[in-house]
Simulated assay, not measured.
Amino acid sequence: MKKIFLIILLITGFLLNALSQENNQKHRLEQLHQLFKTYTEEEVIRNAFFRIETADQSILIDTVVGKFADGEEVTLNTPYYTASIGKTFTATAITLLVDQGKLAFEDRVADHLGKVVTGLSVIDGVDYSKELTIHHLLSHTSGMADYFEDTPISGVNMMQKLITEPDHFWKPMELIDFTRQHFKARFQPGLGYHYSDTEYVLLGLIIEKVTKIPLHQFFEKYIINPLSMELTSMNLWSEPVKRPDFPLAEIYAGPIEISRYQSLSADWAGGAIRSSGRDLNDFIKAIFQGNLISESSLQKMQQWVPESKGTYYGYGLRKWVLNELNPSWPALTLIGHSGSTGAYMYFCPELDIYLSGTFNNTDYMQQHIMFLAEILIGISTNSK
């Protein structure tokens, strides 16, 4: 009888402990949901997406808020624009070609594209374009101008043209010519850091030259289809495998809705991907779990160059170090990429957590890192 009583006590204690853990987990998930809701209550946010998951799925949230202008609800099957997260796709594509022996990171760009690069790297009357390497392009150390946000010699930059010429469909070579005609290089290759979409257009052209297929088809063949990324495609260039509920969640540049603009074609290899939280998390998982590229190539993609306080750039990957951004924050890192629309796709190696989503407004470009920091702080605090 005494033995049976002890067994009952043990079972009861086990069940109470399991129930306590379940309640704690439920409370943690509710807190994460509430934090997301708080960030989406701002008037500028018309729709927002958030997915977070641990490798063991002990934490899993996939949620969305908002409506289209016509009143229809956005859903988890509504693809959203990822903006510069597309750079991670392009850098991964280049890395796949390196792993296949078709490219090397130190290849000279001119050896692949010839005169296409002429005039893009002129400093004090000297053209350094023949010194440009794929490494320079991937790491934003080429010194070339950014046609999107730099101040042009004449006229306006692409960020302004995107709004004023919404019906213009930009082809890749047009973007290179636009840079060559209206912008000056910042420094000689390898002598600094300057974020530039021009570099990633050149990388896209290299991929097409080497593989002899369009960039969007390379993405489909080697990234999207192998990872079953059903809602992912290249905006204005291809369609996803799975028919989405709506073509694309509405994007806002401040108060202006731009999701149907043909001028978004100016992103191309630098950021034209539309996707979902699930697809993006699967993508970055595949990168870091060795299911896409080799371990040695992943290490090369993480050759960090200082970008700004607490921020570093590799090959299509950005790293945030939280306690460098704010000394009161924990020593956690986020590795992935952000987009100008408030989009994000990151991996936190210390917590083995993957986070993707967007706030779909260019006015929220900076707030996403504060949101992610608060999410990770909450999780790390509760796990102690």
Rank of each mutant, 00 (worst) to 15 (best):
residue 50 F to M: 02
residue 113 L to T: 10
residue 295 E to I: 09
residue 312 Y to F: 15
residue 75 T to W: 06
residue 199 E to L: 03
residue 113 L to E: 11
residue 342 G to C: 10
residue 187 F to N: 05
residue 31 Q to R: 12
residue 198 T to E: 02
residue 248 L to E: 11
residue 33 H to V: 07
residue 237 W to H: 14
residue 128 Y to L: 00
residue 298 L to F: 08
residue 245 D to R: 06
residue 210 V to C: 09
residue 80 Y to N: 02
residue 245 D to P: 05
residue 32 L to Q: 03
residue 292 L to G: 03
residue 300 K to W: 10
residue 83 A to H: 08
residue 201 V to F: 04
residue 189 P to G: 06
residue 157 N to K: 03
residue 138 L to G: 00
residue 273 I to N: 01
residue 338 S to W: 01
residue 26 K to E: 10
residue 272 A to Q: 05
residue 347 F to I: 08
residue 246 F to G: 08
residue 346 Y to H: 14
residue 171 K to N: 07
residue 360 N to P: 01
residue 323 N to A: 05
residue 170 W to Y: 15
residue 141 T to W: 03
residue 138 L to H: 03
residue 131 E to Q: 15
residue 104 A to E: 14
residue 29 L to G: 00
residue 192 G to W: 09
residue 165 E to V: 02
residue 372 L to P: 00
residue 282 D to A: 15
residue 69 A to T: 14
residue 274 R to L: 06
residue 216 H to P: 01
residue 86 G to H: 11
residue 360 N to K: 01
residue 134 I to D: 05
residue 70 D to F: 08
residue 5 F to Q: 15
residue 175 L to K: 12
residue 200 Y to W: 04
residue 218 F to E: 13
residue 211 T to Y: 10
residue 158 M to S: 03
residue 377 I to H: 11
residue 170 W to C: 05
residue 308 S to R: 12
residue 225 N to S: 14
residue 318 R to A: 04
residue 105 F to V: 09
residue 307 E to F: 10
residue 377 I to A: 05
residue 167 D to K: 06
residue 70 D to P: 09
residue 20 S to Y: 14
residue 300 K to H: 13
residue 78 T to A: 06
residue 24 N to F: 03
residue 50 F to L: 06
residue 337 H to N: 13
residue 158 M to W: 00
residue 210 V to N: 04
residue 87 K to V: 06
residue 280 L to M: 15
residue 127 D to I: 04
residue 305 V to N: 11
residue 21 Q to G: 00
